[in-house]
Design a protein around this nucleic acid. Sequence first.
DNA 1: ACTTGGCGTCTCACTGTGCGGGATGAGAGT
DNA 2: ACTCTCATCCCGCACAGTGAGACGCCAAGT
Lengths: 233, 233
Amino acid sequence: MGQPNPVGVLDKAVAILHAVADEPATLAELVVRTGLPRATAHRLAVALEGHRLVRRTPEGSWAPGPALAELNRGTPDLGEIAVRHLVALRDATGESAQFYVRDGSSRVCVAAAERTSGLRDTVPVGARLPMTAGSAAHALLAFTPAEEVTRLLPAASFTARTLLDVRRRGWAHSVAEREPGVASLSAPVRDASGGVLGAVSISGPVERLGRRPGAEVVGAVLDAAAAISRAGR
Amino acid sequence: MGQPNPVGVLDKAVAILHAVADEPATLAELVVRTGLPRATAHRLAVALEGHRLVRRTPEGSWAPGPALAELNRGTPDLGEIAVRHLVALRDATGESAQFYVRDGSSRVCVAAAERTSGLRDTVPVGARLPMTAGSAAHALLAFTPAEEVTRLLPAASFTARTLLDVRRRGWAHSVAEREPGVASLSAPVRDASGGVLGAVSISGPVERLGRRPGAEVVGAVLDAAAAISRAGR
DNA sequence: ACTTGGCGTCTCACTGTGCGGGATGAGAGT
DNA sequence: ACTCTCATCCCGCACAGTGAGACGCCAAGT
């Protein structure tokens, strides 16, 4: 039982959508990725196809369908919204800034503003990073339902206690978790119900950011997260 | 009964997603827009929220959720794919070219390449047009399940016969349907299962395009549609 | 040529899930 | 204090969804 308010058919259908999100899947692969019986996977995939939420590739695999883009069209792109706040954050702190969104067991950088000169951490837009390391992972997971977090913690370089601290403070900090010599500081961006939309981060060398971030830097990251949250509503 | 392979819970859940796609809705508005009983609408909306397919706005309304973007992230944006084919089509035909996707009872221009000089038809990217007029509407609807088409035909300036012709020929033509003095020519872009992803169009003054399009122009539109179809797989 | 195995599709008896009317509580307005 | 509207929740019951197994197709192996 993974969902707080389970509707079985919906839970299974969404499992199918996630199963094909990263890579198309044959029916057999879909069965493996979702754990559903073959008849059930087939029946629900065909129903999703009817709603254009999945489609079949020329090879006969299942893939995300055009209705996903249509359903989301009216929603402002958080990456686009985030950019100007990241530029302001970069200028305020002197470090590269990024905005991450969660994608299953990964996080994706959907917007970035790089420090323009000198030593800097670079995360290209589109980069996919793990949810098992880095302060952005902490920020993305801290307010996520416990069931989902429990699955990830065994492979993570942080603990439930780390996430408790993030919930208390409202921000996350890590040193050399994702990459040696790099420190980062992140804050979650949340919607009106507290749902996590993404995470704002700054990152740079430990020598500059320090092992414990200054209040001014923390404040700047929190301000950027709040601004993106307001703009995304 | 609207879907060929109905799964009731899924049908209702997707109705909710469509109900909030264009404009957030309070629960009361959701009930009106979907026709579902209040308890059902509430229960399924909460379940969708659990999956992050909907979210609540600060005002307490339901709106599209971040998982829609996540589920679609790996899918190439057809608009981006289409642009260079539209440029080639514009250059080949000397008319403005657009790519439309369907959005419920509307169509949206997601990519365009305008004729650079002289008299031209302009449809800005992002423009939302009705499905009741214009050759792009014909192209988008011709291969759509009959149930969906039947609902639109009473308000349309074309008939089921028009759509039959489109299915036979593979392209659609209209004169002064959406706008006086403008003719257009469109072809559907379909996926491997024949599902409609969008429609490629050219449009311009009747004086240039004529009341009956030339074979060369038709061929260029069909080629562009096929190229986008291949690129989107 | 024949056999075998894997895959996608379909059927249908069965049962567990989802339904939705109505109760409840909160908040706003009078 | 009272009324009204809205969102939330409960739970008995009917039927929608389940999934094992049959079927057809196709490709690979013998």
